[in-house]
Simulated scan of single mutants.
Amino acid sequence: MTIKNTISEIWYTRCPVPTPVGLAVQLGFLEEAFAKEGVKLNSIIDSKDRAIRSSHFDHHLNYSFRHGGNVPPIRARSEGNPTRLVGITWTDEFQAIITLPGSGIKTTKDLVGRRFGIARRPPGIVDFMAATALKGLVSALSLEGLSHKQVEIVDIALTDSVLDGREGPQLYGLRNRQAYGAEIAALLRGEVDAIYVKGTGGIAVANLIAAHTVVEFGFHPDPRIRINSGSPRVLTVDERLAEDRPDLVARLIETLHRASDWAEAHPDDVRRFVAREVGASEEVVASANGPDLHKHLGLGLEPELVAAIGHYKDFLYEWGFLERDFDINAWVDRRPWDGIDVRAVA
């Protein structure tokens, strides 16, 4: 029996955000492609087993792949977890610093000396939302030549892990809790003066409280300003899958290109599919991701994309979110791309 015949199932996961993996799953492309190889796909994030779901964050499962926010896989790599970076997707999204209309904070310069709230989860899984908010704050302040040292950073303590709260009456039948609930509560109680929000969740809560946008930079022309946990997002595979079945990794990449090509030809359907993926209305998706979302669901490993991940990796290390530093280029595995003619993918 050959190695090729020994893999009967693969674990996969994706974040509830716009990704070609999410599209490929909804379209049935991934299931179809892997079924032809005799491989069953199992969803990590939908598992009832907490130990399996944790692989969404630490990438510990053999024969698995992940597409989504970059902080957990970067952290996993820094801890020595044997993974490979095989693709990058850059889909810009709404990013902003918001406050209440009566706060007196009109512009970024008004943040000096004010309280900026950052939700902090208990130790364990890397606190990717705290990292995201910090990078958002640093990016926003840099536009005015300001430093984070000129702002009072206030921790908003959370008691639950990101793995908790996946079920129960507090969800009211939904898949996930509304993003930024704790931050908005702290803002309304007057415990903080401003917070960072992003994506469809950020748009929704800003609309809910009629917030004042201090600064919005999710579509800023300088990519270093936009770089954050979701910009860009990464496709990673574990080492055993990369080494034992590089053909399946290549098939994965080909299938995602098929989904990306489909997206470019179906802008209205993309908005509908992404709305289902993120649990938001199509109106919110259009506002959060812009009118050209369908053109930004591709996959690549171009040097500028790798450099963007390296830039954010350096930020995470500087701010203490990583176990140790590592060489971003040593993480990249371009072998699955060899021989793939993306133009021929149909």
Rank of each mutant, 00 (worst) to 15 (best):
A157Y: 15
K135F: 06
E167A: 14
L171E: 07
L158T: 05
A119E: 09
L146E: 07
L143V: 05
D160W: 13
D164L: 02
G145M: 00
H148T: 13
A179K: 12
K135V: 01
G136V: 01
I156Y: 01
T132S: 15
R121N: 06
A119S: 13
A157V: 11
I156L: 01
A182L: 08
F128M: 10
G173F: 13
K149P: 04
R177C: 08
V162Q: 07
R166E: 13
V138E: 12
L141A: 04
Q178F: 12
T159E: 14
L141P: 02
G173V: 05
G168P: 08
D155S: 11
S139H: 00
T132A: 10
A131S: 02
L137H: 06
D160Q: 12
D160S: 15
G165L: 04
I153N: 00
L134G: 00
L143M: 14
A119F: 05
G168H: 07
D127L: 00
L143K: 05
P169A: 07
G168A: 11
V151S: 05
H148V: 15
I125F: 01
R166T: 14
K149Y: 13
V151K: 03
E152S: 14
S142E: 13
H148R: 10
A179C: 13
V138I: 10
Y180V: 10
V154I: 10
H148L: 13
K135E: 02
A182H: 09
L146W: 02
R175L: 12
R121D: 03
R115N: 14
V138F: 03
Y180T: 08
Y172M: 11
N176S: 15
L137S: 01
I118W: 03
E144N: 14
Y172Q: 12
F116D: 04
S142Y: 09
A133S: 10
A119L: 07
L146V: 07
L171W: 07
I153A: 00
P123N: 04
A179E: 13
V151N: 04
E144K: 12
S142H: 07
E152I: 08
N176W: 13
I156W: 00
I125G: 09
A131H: 05
I153T: 04
L171T: 09
T159W: 12
L174E: 15
K135P: 01
E144R: 10
I153W: 08
L134F: 06
G124I: 02
D164E: 14
